[in-house]
């Protein structure tokens, strides 16, 4: 959409996608800069959104700046399409844009996510928007931002390994399971937002555009398509993802990220896919398939 035309949304009186065109242009400029320096945190003039900080204000602003009337939007929270955060953000965009929404990963052109990357591999042309609470991976080790900026500028990432060293010294392995720091394009250290480290390998050489928005901290960063994403590790303690003993209790998947769900107050529990679209699709497929000869009685 050109900046000159302002489309006032018919029902609400808001501009298309809530933000005014100048704000969108400003965010798009930051996005372009972020894409040209993979992993670098670009400051941007974050706006107040009709949503509390910590609920995805950064992600919403990024989505609002890249969305067009022809897009199909999918919103997930912890992999699920039907949890509070996902439902309210999806309803927000339905109200202010009228775009088609979908739960299908394959059909979506923009996927806004909190804490997960969908199990189905993304394709070229798709945009994955992450909600980021804390964009600075070095913050725990160095609280001064003047200093962390220098550390990024001069690629001084030795201190970050100290946290991994501490894990191995105390637990015998690298114990960090989410928000696992990675080096993007061999240069910038990046916090991948609190996705499980299970999803880190999916970022590597991904054909989709990955955009990260941190609303409270007012930072945008990005991983362009087909970019190397290397998770930090030691030569003798290589990066590993989580594994589970069983499979998903609903769809039988052994390759997806499983959530532990407590089913009663007597200690019963089951493991199910955290990606609901992936799980539902597999269940539907299994139900539609004619039973094999061995199973027929």
């Amino acid at each position: 959409m050109s900046a000159g035309t302002t489309t006032i949304h018919s029902d609400t009186g808001y501009n298309f996608a809530y933000l005014d065109e100048q704000t969108k242009r400003m965010i798009r400029r930051s996005l372009l800069k972020a894409l040209s320096i993979p992993g670098y945190q670009v400051p941007f003039g974050g706006r107040e959104m009709p949503l509390a900080y910590g609920w995805g204000t950064g992600g919403i602003q990024v989505t609002a700046s890249v969305i067009g009337p022809d897009d199909r939007l999918k919103v997930i929270d912890q992999g699920a399409d039907d949890t509070t955060n996902a439902v309210s953000i999806r309803r927000f965009f339905q109200t202010v844009t009228d775009v088609t929404v979908t739960e299908s990963t394959e059909d979506a052109t923009i996927i806004q996510t909190r804490h997960r990357i969908p199990e189905i591999p993304l394709k070229e042309g798709q945009v994955l928007v992450y909600q980021v609470p804390q964009p600075e991976p070095l913050q725990k080790i160095e609280p001064r931002e003047t200093e962390t900026r220098k550390m990024h500028a001069y690629a001084e990432y030795g201190a970050m390994r100290v946290t991994l060293y501490e894990d191995v010294a105390h637990f015998g392995r690298i114990a960090k399971t989410y928000d696992y720091p990675a080096v993007i394009n061999g240069r910038h250290l990046m916090s991948p937002s609190p996705i499980p480290k299970f999803d880190n390998p999916k970022m590597e050489m991904n054909p989709a555009i990955q955009l990260f928005g941190a609303g409270r901290e007012k930072r945008i960063y990005a991983v362009p398509p087909y970019t190397s994403v290397r998770s930090l590790d030691f030569d003798d303690h290589p990066f590993e993802v989580q594994t589970w003993k069983g499979c998903c209790a609903l769809c039988g998947s052994t390759v997806s990220y499983l959530d532990e769900v407590i089913t009663d107050d007597k200690g019963s529990r089951m493991f199910v896919c955290s990606d609901t679209d992936f799980c539902n699709t597999r269940q539907a497929k299994a139900a539609a398939q004619p039973k094999t000869a061995g199973e027929q009685s």
Partner: peptide, 16 residues
Amino acid sequence: GGNIGERPMAIGARHY
């Protein structure tokens, strides 16, 4: 141990 290891790690030590 981590305090002493920081400098070697900063100049490229990668073996725990």
